[in-house]
Design a protein around this nucleic acid. Structure first.
Length: 512
RNA sequence: GGGCCGUUAGCUCAACUGGUAGAGCAACUGACUCUUAAUCAGUAGGUUUGGGGUUCGAGCCCCCGACGGCCCA
């Protein structure tokens, strides 16, 4: 590959000229790189194999005392995050993927030549070292370094050691720096992965098969949302990034799979906020011969099990308030929730005109032709949602806002659908699936009318999906669980951007 | 989409009523063989987010834009 040349290319020199303040700090490090090269030492090495992590080192040698002289050689590698040079002795703090370790370098142990190398070291460099464990006078387990190798010279300085990097904009834009200096961020990443792994295990253990369905779709469906449009050149047609996998997963039910799930990204062309990223991760699972009641029990089990596995407790603190995830969770209908939280009487909640007047009084954007179900949900979103702190399944959503859900057998104006709310946020959405292709067609047609009337979020009519239903889909229930929301809940994160490694940002100035 | 707030050295922050832009850390030079925000002495580092305006004079006041945060829809 490229030889370890200390020379900066013309381009980088020009670029640095545009950033004079950076260049001064960078150039000091480039000079060290050049000095190293002149001494025959590459600034970007390869081939060093550590044999113990910082965490394993701490466990393995926990019993070492100050008077012990160990001859157990260890090889460790990591990034220098603190450097204290005191003449002929030096302490540095090394950070690897597992944690931190302190290293001690004495001229007499390391040799005068190697000790001189220290002059060329900076905070941020990645080094490899070999040495023996010992305990310092102040009691800290450390490595007494016998041999030192620079693995990667860092050309940019890390943020200040005391306050670190706190500017949220820089943290998200330069997540790599955030990850280096803010251990909490790494923890959230690990928690996220564990949560997803636990969910996957839970479903797999119950006989669910993980599948992948198209993320680029000709007809976006399965949710009420505005899609992103992209373009396929050789097909000369628009494609949409999926807003949900639902219609494809149901095709698989038609095809004969009876327990399936998918964990993957959905894309919705909506505003960006602390609660919304344009791409977000969703679990959807479908089970034949199940009803939405079965899924309530299942989600209750799944989320509480994941919380227990990842946090070790079912009492979660979110935003300073406790929420207890111990099953069983509350269940109430949308109508009951409105009566309880929205200051409506029984007569008002059942009367479209009263609801409309209420909604207008609240300053909600409602249309005078909106059906009762739409008004219900407008009021629900406004005043009920954020009051639902404890885990609660809100059931029986109006048919007008549930074009893919099966009608309730006792009350055909609502569907066998629920949403799960925890800490005032929607976590999951599930329903007994509509299997009747004729009913499904008429629901789609209503959506097409809404779209023609200007509703950009209304569903498209998917003729192939209807054809699939006409072949017969087994009775089934399906659920969508917002993975980012679950991770936020279990990591006490108030912004979705904290749980997404690279959240969407507008281009920074001077960016492409 | 609307309102409010913010953007000053690589990082974290100061700068009174409009009057020469500062500090700590990081960097550089030197001292120092058990430090842990190491210490001590010295040096250097700025298009104050961009553009325009008012003014003898603008980091500060006014206008427009960029990006971010919070709240609202």
């Amino acid at each position: 590959m490229t030889k370890p040349s200390p020379k900066i290319s013309k381009n980088s020199r020009e670029r640095q000229a545009e950033e004079p303040q950076v260049s001064q700090l960078i150039q000091a490090r480039v000079k060290k790189l050049r000095d190293l090269a002149e001494a025959g030492i590459p600034g970007f090495a390869t081939g060093f194999k550590p044999d113990v992590s910082a965490q394993a080192f701490a466990q393995k040698f926990a019993m070492i005392t100050e008077s012990d002289v160990s001859d157990a050689m260890v090889r460790m590698a990591g990034r220098i995050i603190a450097l204290r040079i005191m003449g002929k002795a030096t302490f540095l703090r090394l950070r690897d993927a597992s944690g931190d370790v302190q290293a001690y370098l004495a001229r007499d142990t390391l040799g005068a030549d190697d000790y001189k190398l220290l002059k060329q070291l900076d905070i941020g460099d990645i080094i490899g070292l070999s040495g023996v464990p010992f305990r310092t006078h102040t009691g800290e387990l450390s490595v007494n370094v016998k041999d030192l190798k620079i693995l990667t010279k860092a050309l940019r300085p890390l943020p200040e050691k005391w306050h670190g990097l706190t500017d949220v904009e820089t943290r998200y834009r330069q997540r790599y720096v955030d990850l280096i200096v803010n251990p909490k961020v790494r923890e959230i990443v690990r928690s996220r992965t564990r949560i997803i792994t636990e969910i996957r295990n839970f479903l797999t253990d119950q006989g669910f098969l993980e599948v992948e369905t198209p993320m680029m779709q000709s007809i976006p469906g399965g949710a009420t949302a505005k899609p992103f449009v992209t373009y396929h050149h050789s097909l000369d047609r628009n494609l949409y990034l999926r807003i949900a996998p639902e219609l494809y997963l149901k095709r698989l039910l038609v095809g004969g799979f009876d327990k399936i799930f998918e964990i993957n990204r959905n894309f919705r062309n909506e505003g960006i906020s602390t609660q919304h990223n344009p791409e977000f991760t969703m679990l959807e699972f479908y089970q034949a011969y199940a009803t939405y009641s079965d899924l309530m029990a299942m989600i209750e089990q799944m989320v509480s099990k994941v919380a227990l596995e990842v946090l070790g407790t079912l009492k979660v603190t979110y935003d300073g308030q406790e929420v207890n995830l111990t099953p069983p969770w509350d269940r109430m209908t949308v109508r009951e929730a409105l009566l309880r939280y929205a200051d409506l009487t029984e007569d008002e909640v059942d009367d479209r005109n009263s609801l409309f007047i209420k909604a207008v009084e609240m300053g909600l954007q409602v249309d005078k032709d909106d059906p009762r179900g739409k008004l219900w949900m407008a009021i629900f979103d406004e005043v009920v949602e954020n009051k639902l702190w404890g885990p609660v399944f809100v059931c029986n959503y109006p048919v007008e806002v549930s074009p893919l859900a099966r009608r309730n057998e006792d009350d055909p104006t609502v569907t066998d659908r629920f949403e799960l709310y925890i800490c005032g946020r929607e976590i999951a959405n599930a329903f007994t699936e509509l299997t009747d292709p004729l009913d499904q067609r008429s629901r789609f047609e209503e959506q097409v009318l809404a779209r023609a009337a200007g509703d950009e979020e209304a569903h498209f009519l998917d003729e192939d999906f209807l054809r699939a239903l006409e072949f017969g889909m087994p009775p089934a229930a399906g659920a969508g669980v917002g993975i980012d929301r679950v991770v936020m809940l279990l990591t006490d994160s108030r912004s979705i951007r904290e749980v997404i490694l690279f959240p969407h940002m507008r281009p920074e100035k001077g960016g492409q």
